[in-house]
Design a protein around this nucleic acid. Sequence first.
DNA 1: AGGTTTTCTTGCCCTATGACAAGTTTTATT
DNA 2: AATAAAACTTGTCATAGGGCAAGAAAACCT
Lengths: 194, 194
Amino acid sequence: MISRDHFLNNIFKTSDFSDEELAVIIPKFKKVAFPKNDFILEEGKTENHYWFIESGFARSYVVNTEGKDISTNFYAVGDIVIDWTSFFLRNPTRENIQALTDCVCWQLDFDTFQELFHGIRSFREQGRTTLVNSYFSLKEQSVAMIADQASQRYLKLLREKPHIIQNISLKHIATYLGVTDTSLSRIRKEISSE
Amino acid sequence: MISRDHFLNNIFKTSDFSDEELAVIIPKFKKVAFPKNDFILEEGKTENHYWFIESGFARSYVVNTEGKDISTNFYAVGDIVIDWTSFFLRNPTRENIQALTDCVCWQLDFDTFQELFHGIRSFREQGRTTLVNSYFSLKEQSVAMIADQASQRYLKLLREKPHIIQNISLKHIATYLGVTDTSLSRIRKEISSE
DNA sequence: AGGTTTTCTTGCCCTATGACAAGTTTTATT
DNA sequence: AATAAAACTTGTCATAGGGCAAGAAAACCT
């Protein structure tokens, strides 16, 4: 019997799962802890798991040809931590995912995912929706990179994900927004002086 | 009986479909033609279809707050034309998709898609893979916007999709690459003089 | 607490790209 | 073919943001 206030119950409660389905799904997840700075995923490995974050912060990044890292995403409580491409295409990843603080996560492996995906209609509907939501966010950010000034991208992030601004270091946020840390520092100054 | 050289047979042949499955799937598609400049999808509408292009070129774009359009993708023979977000989340789209030449397409509607997706395991595996591939391309382009110079993004497009460079107007390619048409013209000049 | 490392800010100058405008070439239309 | 309309190029000048380096402030040891 799954406790009514189990973390994963809150994750799944917005979807159309029956109690019976949740009783099948939730026990498949395994609790794991990542200490601060630990790598949840490393470039070159093929991802065989994903996680939901119960506590802590993480970020994903890629390293470009000049050896600089570029943050591609940030993960906070309730977020799914997954490299969609590596997980589903069974390819070595280009991404690194790193715990920025101590993290507690709930993990599912690929085979179990497949079993649930093909076995439970609402699970695959929910999985598809989660992926499409990620796609949507990425597209929004991608269009903003072309259409908006860096300061507007910063303000949007501040508006929509203030917990990221408050908990992630400026240099990581800067690369995510496509500017240098120097520029982001100036953008902050500019904004606070208004 | 589906002809062995039916266009859709070539689309699906790379996946693990049995002949029986193909005989179920392919007849569900409906042939449609879009004349040049026709809108395949318009902002504000909820997308109830997707298409495979048998011939022609199309592009998708969003209009930003200043009224300028930004190309988000180009579609050529064999490509899937779909607004993933609108199609799966059943939301009004922000995108416009426009035929740049006369196009012949094969169309599937949402309800039929759902029937195949939930009914045929290999169909949903293939659908998921297609979506993840789109996600991958978007991410690549997104990281390139931050990590690479405009000229490198142009060269990459030229290398990977020469048919796009050859058939799509400079101004559309420019917004896709995140530069003005003026800049792209200079980039071309710069490259050809090397 | 004292020292070390990391994070953030600021100054100076530079570069890639944008804005605008005037040509030129290509394509479409009658 | 003649005309109009796009598409593309090029010039001049402006600007957002980058590169580098020096401090200041904060976080992290042991």
